[in-house]
Design a protein around this nucleic acid. Structure first.
Lengths: 132, 132
DNA sequence: TGAGACATGAGAATGATTATTTTATGATAC
DNA sequence: GTATCATAAAATAATCATTCTCATGTCTCA
């Protein structure tokens, strides 16, 4: 297992604090409040490393940036098409999907995930204001 | 509706030709065989434009590059974790997922997508060879 | 304590994408 | 048919996210 340096510990703590799943640079801003001299590269390097070690989850969701998640249990996500924010969706994971997919492909299936797209509460409010 | 220029038509034809879903630069290479003087920017611009007009689908799948699909009907995909290739998965779309998700989120849901990850036949073969 | 392993910070490099500028092409009015 | 105008293309510059490099700093454990 990897060494838990100060930087890694604080990155982990800040990630666990939020329910929404931040990008590397959002996390960089959060961590910098406690460690002002940390480099963006360190954040990227350690997020990658912790994901490899199963300590966190790297979400390969749509949008231009990768996002990270302190919860490693399998679950689904919803992404706001306006602002890109990503939240959890609390519905049961459908393991049988993998089985039915396996029957219709030559791929060796490793896993699956479901991503919903929608408009988050904040952006819904903004929309209403814009329409006035 | 947008004008169907030579470039657009050939981009569309080349995209429709393949079952796997190419990235912009893969498509650029394919189109360049027929239009050697086309620019990469033209490919990007027109893919974006055609996606906006519902003529093609822009897939926001995992991985670093966006991929495009000539089929606009709703369907699911599988992505190879080794080489990034994306193929269709021919299982029925589960519309009821959106309904159950709607009950557990404040988001206004617009749609959903299922992405499987796995190892494609080509990479399975390569793996076997590598292990020898 | 001191050598080797590992981690960090700073900044350069890369790769994908988007924006801008210039040039070409096609449609339309005269 | 030619001038005019709009749209599109090509070339190139700019941007953004991410990764890499490297000099320096910090642990670990013999």
């Amino acid at each position: 297992m990897i060494r838990l340096t100060t930087q890694r510990q604080i990155i982990l703590e800040e990630l666990a604090k939020v329910k929404t799943h931040p990008t590397a640079s959002e996390l960089y801003d959060m961590v910098r409040k406690r460690l002002p001299r940390i480099g963006l590269g360190t954040v990227y390097r350690n997020l990658e490393l912790m994901a490899e070690n199963g300590m966190i989850l790297k979400l390969e969701v749509g949008g231009t940036q990768k996002r990270f998640d302190a919860t490693t249990e399998d679950h689904y996500h919803i992404r706001c098409s306006q602002c890109g924010r990503v939240d959890d969706i609390d519905i049961p994971v459908i393991d049988s999907l993998v089985e039915s997919a396996a029957e219709s492909t030559e791929y060796q299936i490793l896993g699956h995930h479901v991503e919903f797209t929608g408009i988050c509460p904040d952006c819904q409010k903004k929309r209403k204001v814009d329409l006035q």
